[in-house]
Design a protein around this nucleic acid. Structure first.
Lengths: 337, 337
DNA sequence: GGTCACAATGGAAGGGCTTCCAGATCCGTT
DNA sequence: AACGGATCTGGAAGCCCTTCCATTGTGACC
């Protein structure tokens, strides 16, 4: 019974006709709905096979008002973001969870004005059942649209300027606290930090974690130096810190790139790591394994982040309630501490 | 005239009613079609604004038989593939080109049987206007389905077992030839190669490029050693090559990972690079800049690959004809030659 | 044997849009 | 003033499915 793929699609009507039933019955068979006798069910199934019938998802979407798809929106001006392996892992997580729910994934890169407009259109036209919004920055117009839309929107990472109804985030505060406490546990007491840009929630949270750990240990947090998350900025910040605190013996950098820069600057200043100074990063990017010495850092479960975002969205779409979800991080001990 | 986003969507009928025209006219205005008087056009536009009307893409798709979307299918058993920065760049290229054509991107990861089934469903149900198929391996069932489908399918990379109607590929032969000729140009004459698995077109082509360059220079290509594209395999292959050809002075490895392994094996054998032996890789992955010495390699324009795949698909969907496209590579000179 | 509850069935009404087509309008020509 | 032609216009027929509802059929139970 090897069927050709017919160029013209069979319709449900044709299936029903061939099976000698009404379209309603055929539809019920397709959707595995009750109220179909065993005999008719089989006869419809046979007709489906014979005609190579595949339901038309557009017609179905129109009738059910469900798109059968969710959008993953990457909202960032820089089209290069995707090069970051972060997104590969995030996408992998999202893909897996959407597959479980049998939803398709629409991937939207909102890097240009045109791209952002398209996303807005997508949301307003309800071409998808829900949206996962990530990499959103402060004053992101998409965040506003998403916030106002009746469509379920799950945020990846808590936005800096409001608390969305649904979001999944990494435990930045806890991770930073762990990192700092790790430094303290190794006997470091003059611990400083290199922060990220203060208009990002990530940077703020990680800074908060540092302060909490210091205060908890009865130490006074030292004023941070700020960088833009780049290696160069990390090196520059480290240099400034060495001037301000020549006695420092521990550094918590808000991400691995800056930590790598800090290592470079420390070496340049003649301090040896981890003998004189211990350094901890955050993110556990590939670079963390390639620095010399290899970087102790906070690993974040990016793939889980994607998975949980998708699961949360699926839940909300299905009418289940859900609250924010914060995923735990863990420290990866390498040679820089 | 700040409109609320109404929870219930306005329909074209309502727009038409408000504007005092028929639905046909309203539709023509939406689609920028001719045969609408200036007055009615404006009145419809006003109604659209007033109602905050956004066309329902599902209804439109049903009526036009166009999905307004293309699928990028990543067909690989390993769900980890996405972690490879390769895909980030590919996706970025595809996203940009689809945006130009105002098509949405459906991203399908066909890593599990379930995933593959979903892709098949997608293709057969014509839920998208076309497909870009990448990372497809030999005997990939999806490749077969794609081949038989009436839907336009653009392959990323030429499959090993047949020549698809539409595909975009990197010039693997030319790149490998350039790599080998670069070695020869630097005075190396006893040049060997480390191949990839011979069931991939990439590996075959790169091996062919090596042989062509050797033959063209009047030299006899030496029998290759084969690895699975991993660093460890590269090191092992290099060790075997050193035994078989103790006099070798140049190595072309079919990818950077294996080249990195080769460098390690060479150092282990006491040969210095590039003094005793020159090494060239292929891919220009991040690792190429991190090896010691930094690796001379063939850069491939992955983002362009994505862009051109999408453009080709858009063209085919629009009814334009197109043939295969081979993108040029270029050699990046570093310290290993 | 008569009721009742419930399963099975098919007709019909949508869901919201595009597009064909026939008829109405308008213009410039002769 | 009549006419050919192009330009508008709206009615209606799709596109293909889901789902409500009224109708019919079935078995259980008293």
């Amino acid at each position: 019974m090897a069927e050709e793929l017919p160029h013209r699609h069979a319709t449900l009507d044709e299936v029903a006709a061939l099976a000698g039933v009404s379209r309603s019955v055929a539809s019920r068979v397709i959707n595995n709905a009750p109220h179909v006798s065993r005999a008719k069910r089989e006869s419809v199934e046979k007709a489906i096979r014979k005609l190579g019938y595949v339901p038309n998802p557009k017609a179905r979407a129109l009738a059910t008002r469900q798109a059968g798809a969710a959008a993953l929106v990457i909202s960032r001006d820089d089209p290069e973001v995707l090069t970051d392996p972060f997104f590969g892992q995030l996408i992998a997580g999202v893909a897996g969870a959407l597959e479980e729910a049998d939803l398709h994934m629409m991937l939207c890169v909102a890097a240009t004005p045109r791209g952002r407009e398209r996303v807005e259109q997508l949301v307003r036209s309800r071409a998808v059942d829900g949206v996962m919004l990530t990499a959103s920055h402060e004053d992101d117009p998409l965040a506003r649209i998403a916030k106002e839309s009746p469509l379920p929107v799950v945020f990846g990472g808590r936005p800096v300027d409001f608390e969305p109804r649904w979001y999944v985030d990494i435990d930045n505060v806890g991770g930073a606290r762990d990192a700092t406490e790790h430094l303290l546990a190794r006997g470091r007491t003059r611990v400083v930090t290199i922060c990220g840009p203060q208009d990002t929630e990530v940077a703020r949270s990680r800074h908060r974690g540092y302060r909490e750990a210091m205060t908890l240990a009865g130490l006074t947090p030292r004023p941070p130096e700020v960088g833009d998350f780049s290696e160069a900025a990390g090196a520059a910040a480290m240099t400034r810190l060495l001037e301000a605190h020549p006695d420092l013996d521990g550094v918590f950098a808000a991400n691995d790139n800056m930590a790598a820069g800090a290592l470079r600057a420390l070496r340049g200043a003649g301090r040896s790591v981890p003998e004189d100074v211990s350094v901890v990063g955050f993110d556990d990017l590939a670079v963390a394994q390639l620095t010399d010495p290899a970087l102790t850092t906070i690993h974040q479960p990016i793939r889980d982040l994607g998975r949980e975002m998708a699961r949360m969205l699926v839940g909300v779409v299905a009418g289940r309630t859900a609250g924010p979800l914060i995923l735990p991080t863990h420290l990866v001990k390498r040679s820089s501490t």
